[in-house]
Structure formats: C-alpha cells, structure tokens
Design a protein around this nucleic acid. Structure first.
Length: 963
RNA sequence: GCGCACGUGGCGAAAUGGCAGACGCGCCAGACUUAGGAUCUGGUUCCGUAAGGAGUGGGGGUUCAAGUCCCUCCGUGCGCACCA
C-alpha cells in the first residue's frame, strides 16, 4: 500500500521540530507577574527578556480555545484535528502578528466508558483514563500543534476537581435575588414575610412553605438544591440524566430508553438565569443557527396566566347542602374558591375557550373529579403513568383524555365549560393546565373533534376567504364581547393588551413569561465523577439535612472500590464504601456524583492559571486573559477582530462540534454567569466568538462509523503523508463549518504541493546524495538531513517587480482569508504562488522568506526545516535570522504593488459577455465607452442595432444596451 | 408539523450584484525515463468540426447586469417536537 517515494523526509523533519519546540518551550504563554526567560523567542520578539511583566507590559492577548476531548479508548478521530488545526493556524498567525497567544489543551476525562470498563474488569477507571490520555497526547503531539502544555489540565486530577467542587459550593451557597437580578451569597437572603414567600412555589406545596423553617427556606432558594420529583431515569446506564441529555425519550449516549421516575436529586437553578442566558446571546459572536438552538431550548414565551373558578359540583352552587352529601369523594371542601390557573400566549382567544384540560398529574384533579367520573379518571391516570416519555410522544397522533365531571367558569363571559384531563397537556410546562381554544389551536381542535366539544370562532383571518378553523396567526377578534369586557374588532396585539390589562385589574390574571428551560438535574449515580462536597446530618427532629463540607476538606476524593456496580438495593456505587460513607459523628456522605459537564463548565478558566494552588484562577491572570474591558459587538456578523490590538472579552475564539449546542455551551454560560455575579470572573460571557466545525464524513459520504468500516485513522495518514500534509488537507477540504467527505486522494494533492515547496528550496543533487546515504545507513538518517543544501537558484538577488507582485498578492489573500477563517482559499493562494515561483530562474531569498512565514501556520514542520536552511545559507531579507520562525513578524502587503497600470475589462452587450478590452486603470468613462464600442468580438452583436444606452462601471465592466 | 441552514462540473469546492467553475482530486495528451503509482508541461462544464449556443435544483420576479437579491415549489442536512 505504501506509495513509492516520499515527497520529502517529513518522517525526520517532523519529530525533529516537535522536539525542538518542547525543549525550547516555544509556545509557552506568560502570566502577569512572571519573569520572562531572556532567551525565549516571545521575550526576544517583544523585548521583555528578563523582565517581570505586568499586564501592561504584555502585548494584547489572544485566547484561542479548542473543546477539550474525552480521551476515549478509540483514540483520536479525524474530526478532532479539524478544529485543532484551525485554532492552531490562528494561534500561529496571531503570534506572528504580535499577539500574546493562549492556546491550551486538556482532558475531559471523567466519563462513562472508563467506568463501564471498570465494572466489567475491575480495573480502576483512573488506570484506563491515564492510558487513554497518554495515547491522545502522543497523537495530538504528533500533529505539531502549538499548545502551551505547561497549562494542561485533566478534569479527573484531584488538583483540578478540587476547584470543580469549590465552584459547586459557591453555587450551593448562593441564591438568585430577583431584585438585583443576580446571584448573591445565601447570607443576603432574608426570611420573607409570610405574604410574599417564594412566588415560584406552586400553590399545591404552599402549605409546606408555610411550615418551613428558616433553614428550609434557604435550602429552597439555593442555586443548588435537592428535589424529589420525576426525573429521567435510564436503567441501561444506571443513572438519571438531564433533560438536555434525553433525545426523543432515549439517552443521548447509547440511545437507551429513558423513563420518568420520582427520585431525590440535586438540581441547579439554571432557570433563574433564563432571561440573561437569552438576552446575552445578542452580545456574542456565535453562528445564527447555534444561537437559535439556545433560544429554542430556553423557549421564552410571553403570555398571561388566567384563573378560572371551578364551578360548584353538581348542578348549581346555589344549593350548598349538596356539598355536604358528597362525602364519598376524597375532597369536597370548596365553595367556588378553587381556581384553575392556566398559562396562555393568546389571552385574546379567551372567549373561544370551550373547555379546559389539566395534566393527569395536576394536583387539582383529585379535588374536582366527580363521583361518576372517579373510576374513569383513575384508570386514565394509571394508564398514562405507565407510559414512558417515548410512548407518550410516539402516540401523540391520537389524542386521549377523560372528563373529570367538573366545570369551570370562563371569567370573561361566565360560561360553564367542562374540565378534562389529557396527557397532551404537560405537567411540567406553564401551570400544567390549559384553556382549550379549539378554533385556533391545532391540538385543541383535534381533541375537540374527537370528543365532540364545541368549536367557537374568535379570531377572523385577515383574508376573509381563509378558513378560520385552525387559524393560528394574528387577525381580528370576533365574538369576543362579554358583560364587562369586549375586544371584538381589535387586532390581535391590541386585543391581547386590552384583555390582559382587564384581567390584571380584576385580579383574574396577569402578564407572565414562561420558559421551556428546566432546572438542571445535576447528580448522577456513578463512580467516576466528582463526589459532592456534601454530607447529610439528622437535625433535632430526626430529619436528614444536607450540609456543605468546608473548603479545607477539598478535594474530596472518591473512595477505593473493588466493585463499581450500584449496590444491590440500587444505591450509587459510592454507597459500597462503608468506611468512606459514614463519618465519625454519624453523618453520611452524599453518594451521587456530578455529571461529566461539571468539569467542562469551567476548564477554560483553569487554563489561565493552571497550577495555582490557592485559588481556581488568580484575579490578575483572569482579568488579563479574559480581557475585562467590554467591547460592544457590532451588529454585523463580524469575523474576529482584524487588529491584534483589539482584544475581545472572554475567549476570543472557541472552536468545536455542534453537538454541545444546548449542553456544554449552555451549562458553561450558566456557571460563568454565577461566577460573574459573585465577583470571581470579570466578563458576563465566557466565549466571545464561537465556530462549529463541520462533520468529516467517510469517503462514501456517510458518517464515519466502525460498523460501516469507513473510519479514517489519523495515525495512518500521518505515517503515510506526514502531519503537515494531514493538517493542510483538513483545512483544504472546504469551509471549516461545512460537513464534507474525506478523500485520501485529496491528501495526496496537498502532499504533492508540500513536495513542490520542498523542491523549490532544496538542491536536487544534495537530496539525491542524502537519499543514497540514508539507504546505506538507515540509522543515521536524521544526521544526514543537514547535508541537504539550499537550492542555488535561491540567492540574495533583488526581487523583480513581478516577483514582488506575486508575493504581495499572496500575502494579501492569505492574510484576509485567515481573518475570515477561510483556510481553504488561503491554501489555494499559496499553491498559486508556488506554481509561479517554480518558473523563476532566480529566486530571491527575501521573497521566499516571506512566503515561509505565510506557510508556517499551516505546515509548521516543513517551514521550520526550510527556514533553518534559508537563514544558514542566504539572507532572509530584512528579517532577524536569530528569531525563531514561530515569532517572525507576519508580512504586510504593500497595496501600491498590487495596483496595475492597465486592466482588462469585460464588455457585455445586453448583459451578455462578448469581449475584453485592455484599458488604463484610471481611464475616464467616456474613453471606456468608446473603446468598448470598438471591441472586436462585440461588433457582430452591434451591427444593425441602435445603441440605446451604455453602462460604464469604472474598473469593473462596460455593458452596451442595444435594441 | 415548526424553525434554521444548504442545493454550482465526474468529485471536494471558488466567485464585494459585473468574464461562473479559482485551487485541488480524477481523467486525457505530451515531455523526461529501462520503467512510472515519481516529476514537469498542456487540456478537461455540456452541445457543436467551428462560428456559436446552453448552463449554478424547478418556475416566476427585481435589475443595464442574478450562482449571488425577492417570491414560490422541489430536494438534502441539522435542530426542536403535544411547550398551550
């Protein structure tokens, strides 16, 4: 399979320079307060050698970040290096431009596969994880990325997760103050007067609030709290999952069924940040589709809550004695004071509400169901409770439900309307109850049709011919006049306003904003995750209460286990460690662990100060690298700032896959906002610009997978073609954000290009000798490398104007394309340059030195080798031959060189291209017109015609309009 | 069903509203070679010997001029999915 002859000895060149970079710490970044080694190229470039630097001494920062990988046993996938190469090129480019670049890498190393392997084999997940990290490190290093490895982090490192646990404690010890609209320490929380205690608590548990002690009230307000509620339980994975991890009723990982099951779990109050998470999307430079995904997930909708009084049971509330006879029912205490609260985005359709529906789990169902309907309601509830979420969605086509026997009063017109229960109404959204307006809601219409409920038009479509049945958009209210309020004749927005104002005035309802976002289920029944720094203690009443461990107890390590399975009675694996579990005072440890997202929520902050032993990140490092001064975002979809002197707040560029759109990227923003509110970080958003790389498909255009057998192994490509060719190909395939199929033939194309670059620079004769020597003494290959001489055509000769033009065209294109992240077209510009330069008999070294600097970010190994030969044997123009290639200043193009004296202009006749004319670049319009009218190939289309008009766009084209 | 992207040669793709197909793959021809799966040179959207004509998913529109802007239909991908 191996191709005949190497284009160039990359197998020697690449390890050589990787070793050089490691030895020299070439890509180390420095924090304020550090003393710069005099010999370091960064210090040399910026004249900071030996100096103890402050943030003011350092050049502008550029923080370019990759989504750190989970180090799986399968090793690196070709998708990983796609993003890594893009960020590495940018890192190297900005370094050359003079920025102080932070480009780190680490490991998201907690995770299920290592734990599952431990369950099977008994091998500790740490062993598996370390082996996988070692393999990933080898693979990533073989690609020559310019990471600052001194800042490497692993989420499984106790010195790392110490701070993950610490941040959890900050969250635990905070609450969201609606008055200041931010997170605050729990100490600022005041026990409220009874009247206005926690309006977020649904009415049905209000009693519990009334009885709550101060402590319980605090626990209820914490941003990390314990909840006993139905959660997503995945039996196959043996753990609960967050809403974001459940797709179509199946687990995101593995696709196993997920059921709803009530369990006591830790939750994080992300819903308190819903509005900020939504609004601040406008301040960051992310793709429109990604922002849209987050917006949809947060799911803000504006509307109104409306109270419907429940009609007294039986025929009439006027016969109070009836109530006392209803003893067979579980609860008949009400005298019309019972209310059903609904949420609607269309209060203007209130007159069209012809029935109501409660979720089967709704607390009022027990109270309002009549004796006659009791059995039917019970059966229905039992039936829906058995259904998994998956079944509930799959069976969505056919609506089901039963009547409770009760009626409610429509507050706008006093109509008595029946109250049903149906599983198309979700307990977890809004108030768990709806008013049904079958005329203007698809689901209500289906339900009304099936159960023969009345349908009443209340909105007239703008087009009178349009059928009003199922008309959902804005129109004009009709049939909407009651005894006290009328909105008939009003357009939908006005109707909404008027009726909402009336409801508020009457105390019947109020304007409300609802979110689809739910609180984040934060605990998992696993071994291989961060243990919660929480213990449980019995209080005076014998009730278990949770309590935070002191910071001095961190890091809290997981116990050693022989068996990583859950306990036989279904407790998480940590419960097996009896010694660990119980403390001397009898209190017990929390046995759940944090989800994998915990570590990835803040790793980008740890990179800033990765070895700090006293805090998660020092203030100086944080404010320098995150760039505290806030810049207003321009409303255009700007690319990253073109000027290195303009740092952006937060991470300047974050590149990763789209699979984290509503997981990691939402969670990390949430944690960051809490840390911001508490004063631990200086920017409200973590990631200023974010780019999603597209998927790399197999050669057959299908998604790479083991079962299809179309997986490309990066190691094999690097062995065959070298890291530079691999990097170059991944960037040449197409736009970064697009998904595109792999083509090994395409790798050969860029590999040939690198070979041409090599042959342009080196002496053919000396290379032949090198190959002969290598063949004779394979073990000494590396030392023969220095025998390869520079191509004699490469010399100190002054460049011609044409050569400078070729160079500067290339500089311009590559620079502009890198600013716009258009790597593929930047590479094609360099290919054009090389094709041209190959034809030069005399190759001025100054021109080629600039080209080397352009190519360096893309193919760093090859260019280092050629740069070494160039500076050793020729003058690299005005460049400092002592300065490392990685820090050589990026060349600037001279616009004056790119101006042509004469240009070719297309001539069109009636918009069709016919000929080109060569004219002076600044020729006046009249001259262009005259020349165009004489253009030879245009003549056949002009004879016998009248010229009606001539459009002249100087420097662009001439269009002759004839009739 | 709703939302968001995207449809250009045999393939990956280029094209501030102004010469469609840069660059690369593949293919064809030539040069150098004992040889070529190395390298170099030329060609390569389709129809046509040519002049020329057609052409960026289909249809319509705006414009002197549309791959690009607008409308509509079709197709592909992604996201959400009974969210009231």
């Amino acid at each position: 399979m191996s191709s005949s002859r190497r284009q160039y000895p990359f197998h020697l060149v690449e390890p050589k320079w990787q070793q050089f970079w490691t030895d020299r710490q070439t890509f180390r970044a420095f924090n304020p307060g550090e003393t710069l080694p005099p010999e370091h190229p960064f210090a040399r470039r910026h004249q900071l050698g030996g100096k103890t630097v402050s943030a003011l001494d350092l050049p502008p920062k550029f923080y370019v970040l990759d989504m750190f990988p989970y180090p799986s046993g399968a090793g690196l996938h070709v998708g990983h290096p796609e993003g890594y190469t893009a960020t590495d090129i940018l890192a190297r480019y900005r370094r050359a431009q003079g920025s102080h670049v932070l480009h780190p890498m680490g490991w998201d190393s907690f995770g299920l596969p290592a734990e599952q392997y431990a369950v099977k084999t008994g091998q500790h997940p740490r062993i598996t994880t370390e082996a996988n990290i070692a393999n990933f490190t080898r693979q990533i290093k073989s690609l020559g990325f310019s990471y600052d490895w001194s800042r490497e982090v692993a989420t499984t490192d106790p010195e790392y997760f110490r701070w993950t646990q610490w941040i959890f404690l900050q969250i635990y010890n905070s609450w969201f103050n609606p008055e200041t609209n931010r997170a605050e320490p729990i100490s600022t929380l005041k026990y409220p007067p009874e009247r206005d205690r926690d309006p977020n608590v649904p009415p049905n548990i209000h009693r519990a609030v009334e009885e709550a002690k101060r402590r319980e009230f605090a626990d209820r307000c914490r941003l990390a709290y314990v909840s006993e509620a139905p959660v997503n339980w995945c039996a196959e994975l043996g753990t609960v999952l967050a809403n974001e991890e459940v797709i179509d009723g199946k687990s995101e990982v593995g696709g196993f069924p997920v059921i709803r099951k009530p369990m006591r779990q830790w939750m994080l109050r992300i819903t308190a940040f819903a509005e900020k998470l939504l609004a601040d999307l406008d301040t960051i430079d992310w793709s429109a589709s990604l922002k849209e995904m987050q917006r949809n997930w947060i799911g803000r909708s504006e509307g109104a809550e409306v109270d419907f009084a429940v009609a007294a049971p039986r025929e009439s509330a006027a016969e109070p004695n009836e109530n006392e006879n209803g003893g067979a029912l579980p609860s008949r205490r009400y005298e019309g004071e019972l209310k059903i609260r609904v949420f609607t985005t269309r209060p203007d359709t209130l007159f069209g509400a012809t029935y109501m529906v409660l979720a089967p789990e709704h607390a009022l169902v027990d109270e309002i169901t009549t004796e006659e309907q009791w059995q039917a309601v019970e059966d229905y509830r039992a039936h829906t409770a058995r259904k998994s979420d998956l079944e509930r969605t799959e069976l969505a086509k056919e609506k089901t439900g039963v009547w409770t026997g009760a009626y409610a009063i429509n507050p706008v017109n006093g109509e008595k309307i029946p109250v049903w229960i149906a599983d198309y109404v979700l307990a977890s959204y809004g108030t768990g109850a709806i008013m049904a307006v079958p005329a203007h809601d698809t689901r209500d219409f289906e339900f009304a049709t099936k159960f023969n409920l009345p349908v009443m038009q209340v909105v007239q479509p703008p087009d009178p011919k349009m059928d009003w049945h199922g008309f959902l958009d804005d129109g004009t209210s009709v049939n909407s006049t009651g005894p006290e309020i009328s909105i008939t004749g009003l357009a939908t927005p006005e109707a909404k306003k008027k009726i909402t104002a009336w409801l508020e005035e009457k105390g019947l309802g109020k304007k409300t904003i609802n979110y689809k976002l739910r609180d984040w289920l934060f605990s998992r029944q696993r071994y291989w995750g961060e243990p919660f720094p929480i213990i449980w203690k019995k209080d005076a009443n014998g009730i278990l209460q949770h309590e935070a461990l002191p910071e001095s107890a961190l890091p809290l390590l997981p116990p050693a286990l022989d068996d990583y399975k859950p306990t036989p009675d279904g407790q998480p694996p940590l419960a097996r460690a009896k010694d660990w579990l119980t403390l001397p005072d009898g209190s017990t440890r929390e046995t759940n662990t944090m989800p994998q997202w915990a570590g990835s929520c803040w790793y980008y902050l740890r990179y800033l100060d990765a070895r700090n032993k006293t805090t998660f990140v020092s203030k100086d490092a944080e404010s320098y690298w995150m760039g505290s001064e806030k810049l207003p975002i321009s409303n255009s979809q700007s690319s990253i700032s073109n000027s290195p002197s303009q740092p952006t707040p937060g991470v300047d560029l974050y590149v990763g896959g789209t699979e984290h759109a509503v997981l990691h990227l939402l969670y990390a923003r949430f944690w960051h906002k809490v840390l911001f509110d508490l004063g631990h970080v200086s920017t409200p958003e973590p990631f200023f610009k974010l780019v999603n790389q597209g998927l790399i498909l197999g050669e057959n255009g299908q998604k790479m997978s083991k079962s299809i057998g179309n997986v490309i192994n990066p190691d094999a490509i690097v062995t065959e073609y070298g890291a530079d060719a691999f990097r170059l190909y991944e960037m040449f395939m197409g736009p970064l954000e697009m998904s595109k199929p792999w083509s090994t033939k395409g790798v050969e194309g860029v590999y040939r290009f690198l070979g041409r670059v090599w042959r342009l620079f080196v002496d053919e004769q000396s290379e032949t000798e090198f190959e002969q020597n290598c063949a004779a003494h394979p073990v000494r290959e590396a030392e023969f490398l220095t025998q390869i001489r520079l191509n004699p055509a490469l010399c100190d000769a002054a460049p011609t104007t044409a050569q400078l033009k070729t160079l500067h065209t290339c500089i311009k294109k590559v620079t502009e394309d890198l600013d716009g992240l258009r790597f593929n077209t930047a590479i094609s510009a360099m290919m054009v340059f090389i094709s041209e330069a190959m034809t030069w008999e005399v190759k001025p070294s100054a021109v080629l030195a600039d080209f080397i600097v352009l190519l360096q970010p893309f193919a760093p190994h090859l260019t280092e080798e050629l740069w070494g030969k160039l500076v050793a044997h020729a003058k690299p123009g005005a460049r400092d031959p002592q300065l490392d290639l990685a820090y050589q200043p990026w060349p600037k193009f001279d616009p004056a060189l790119l101006v042509e004296d004469t240009i070719e202009l297309p001539v069109q006749v009636n918009g069709k291209f016919r000929d080109v004319i060569r004219v002076a670049v600044d020729a006046p319009a009249a001259e262009l017109e005259a020349t165009a009218l004489k253009a030879g190939k245009a003549q056949p289309f002009l004879v016998g015609k009248t010229v009606k008009k001539v459009i002249v766009v100087p420097k662009r084209m001439v269009n002759i309009v004839v009739a």
